[in-house]
Design a protein around this nucleic acid. Structure first.
Length: 568
RNA sequence: GCCCCCGUAGCUCAACGGACAGAGCAUCUGCCUUCUAAGCAGAGGGUUGCAGGUUCGAAUCCUGCCGGGGGCACCA
């Protein structure tokens, strides 16, 4: 973490500069009110903005405009009064009050370039922020039923969940990534029935594929594998259902395929949680007993109901069917009992597709029924991906005949490009993924623009051998506007990490990465690092600058689970 | 019918209630004997679906309409 002492001379002590600025303002407002220069009206939480135009400085505050009405005072006068009480240190070169009432903060150039040393000293940890304080957070994402390979749509949840997990870890949370394996529900039963039908057909038996089964070709391949590995040992007398062993073998095989898919995108899970385990470990009974004890269970029409309507949901939900079989909702209730009460996560984040949107209110109600503050459960809903091939819309469903697997897309465009594209879309946006476009844009994808910046720096650093050690480089020699712009972008990373950890919207990351790369490419065009024309001291200072930029680029890419190539 | 989400440049998408709505791709014009041209500089392209309202200020908040996606099971 940043230490003010190391930075020297200033009072900024936090990883996130914005926090320092907000503290300055909050103090100034308090003093201005105490001095009677600003009426003692309630003041909203100070929030500074990043102005779009560099003319407006590095940070801007519109507080005066916001409180002008309640203070019955001209916003310019309020801003001036606050401005007079701001006690800036060496970090700021200018604090100006601008019409109609903004207070703009300009970071000092000397302080800015000094941060290059601070960034290098922090190394790969630059970008970390002490927000989570080690609190335990679980992020569960994708958790696709093990009844088929991952499809393109899963890629979105994957990129979203995985990036979120990485950012939360950088923000100081103790993060666990979890995949729930739905190995106990009706879907895997239908899957097994389909598999068994194929298996029987291969053994010459005249049976039909079940209604509503899984039509994908991979099912036939799977049956062939079972036949090759187990012969006819899984066959049962005609008319009898499939053996449990076939179900389990099929699910295990499918899970293996999914794990390979995940490995291809570079996603690693810390824990694979079996739904079946809820029933073998007593969790399900415990969870149900607790909810019953707390008065949220009634028996009606032969079934067991959860009275979610008492907790804000629109209607009640069945927990146990009249057949005695638990519903998906009962499983999920028990699953969250396990997450919160057994494993004790401080916070649980579930990343779900929009087709699960209706499930949100009852899960929130379930948390409350378990005695857990529903604020500790965050469910992120991302809109489903519309898949297109040119103008034609392709249906994304394992139940439909055609599936476009995630693996297909990754083999076509590469894991980095796929992730970059998916991360860059806000979860609420409805995105269209054009397979043809993705293919064509393979080489024009902005992901290469970012990676190229990293590779270019690696090239520069390899030329630095004739300069030797540049650790004594004097960063105060960095005064060119392109150099300053690059430093400014680098310093934004911790702030971005913090803001994403709060908003849980990682789509800003790729945009930042592109901006950082742009700042570097611009610097590259305008400032020579190693050359006979460049004085040695300046070369050394610039080597420090690009070494820091390389490190920050790598971190930004790393937070998205992408590679940072040394050459391209 | 009710609920959730979306509608921004030709296309794909950004924009924390703020200061002239931004990128990439596509189109057009320039720039490689010098650290990687997967790059840089510049141009064109917008009544932010429509109509009202709140606000000093609205793409952003509220209401209505139009269009699209998803959800409303003893499925998951």
């Amino acid at each position: 973490m940043c230490r003010s002492g190391r930075w020297g001379g200033g009072s900024f002590g936090q990883a996130v500069i914005r926090d320092d600025i907000e503290n300055l303002i909050a103090g100034a407002v308090r003093r201005a009110q105490e001095a009677g220069e600003v009426p003692a009206v309630p003041v909203p939480a100070v929030a500074v903005e990043r102005p779009q135009s560099p003319l407006h400085g590095d940070y801007a505050c519109s507080l005066a405009l916001r409180i002008a009405r309640s203070a019955r005072m001209n916003p310019m006068d309020i801003a001036s009064a606050i401005g007079r009480h701001i006690k800036g240190g060496d970090e700021l070169s200018l604090v100006e009050v601008v019409a109609p009432g903004f207070i703009n903060f300009h970071l000092s150039e000397a302080w800015l370039v000094a941060q290059v040393n601070a960034i290098l000293q922090q190394g790969p940890a630059f970008g970390d922020v002490p927000l989570g304080q080690g609190r335990r957070v679980q992020v569960e994402y994708v958790s696709a039923n093990p009844v088929g390979p991952l499809h393109v749509g899963n890629g979105r949840g994957l990129a979203l969940g995985d990036t979120l997990a990485r950012v939360l870890a950088a923000a100081g949370y103790d993060v666990q990534r979890e995949y729930l394996v739905n190995d106990a529900g009706t879907q895997t039963q239908i899957f097994a029935a389909t598999l068994y039908a194929h298996y029987q057909q291969l053994l010459g038996r005249e049976v039909e594929l079940p209604e509503g089964g899984y039509p994908g070709e991979y099912m036939l391949k799977l049956a062939q594998e079972l036949l090759a590995e187990h012969g006819d040992s899984l066959l049962r007398p005609p008319g009898e259902p499939y053996p449990q062993e076939l179900h389990d073998l099929g699910v295990a095989k499918m899970l293996g395929v999914i794990k390979e898919d995940l490995a291809a995108v570079g996603v690693h899970y810390d824990n694979w949680f079996s739904e079946q385990a809820l029933y073998t470990s007593g969790t399900y009974e415990e969870a149900l007993a607790l909810v019953r004890e707390r008065g949220y269970v009634v028996e009606r029409e032969g079934a067991v109901w959860f009275v979610s309507s008492a907790l804000g949901d629109e209607k009640d939900n069945v927990l146990v069917r009249s057949s005695g079989a638990p519903t998906y909702f009962a499983s999920d209730l028990a699953y969250h009992y396990d997450k919160f009460l057994r494993r004790g996560f401080d916070r649980v984040i579930n990343v779900w597709g929009a087709d699960h949107q209706g499930h949100v209110p009852r899960m929130k109600a379930a948390a409350s029924a378990l005695g857990v503050d529903s604020e500790r459960l965050t469910i992120i809903i991302y809109q489903l991906v519309t898949l297109k091939r040119g103008a034609e819309v392709v249906r994304l469903s394992k139940r439909a005949g055609e599936i476009i697997t995630l693996r297909d897309v990754i083999e076509e465009v590469g894991a980095d490009a796929a992730r970059f594209n998916f991360v860059g879309r806000a979860a609420a946006s409805h995105i269209e993924f054009d397979l043809e476009l993705a293919k064509r844009q393979g080489a024009e994808n902005p992901v290469y623009y970012v990676q190229y910046a990293h590779a270019r720096i690696a090239g520069i650093l390899s030329h630095a051998e004739r300069i030797g050690d540049y650790a004594d480089g004097d960063v105060s020699l960095l005064t060119h506007e392109a150099e300053l712009a690059l430093v400014r972008k680098m310093l934004f990373l911790p702030e971005l990490v913090e803001s994403i950890a709060v908003s849980l919207e990682p789509h800003q990351l790729p945009y930042y990465a592109v901006e950082l790369a742009t700042a570097f490419h611009d610097f590259y065009e305008r400032c020579r690092v190693v050359s006979d024309e460049v004085p040695l001291p300046l070369s050394k200072a610039r080597l420090k600058l690009v070494a820091a930029a390389k490190q920050v680029l790598a971190r930004a890419l790393g937070l998205m689970g992408m590679t940072a190539p040394e050459r391209m």
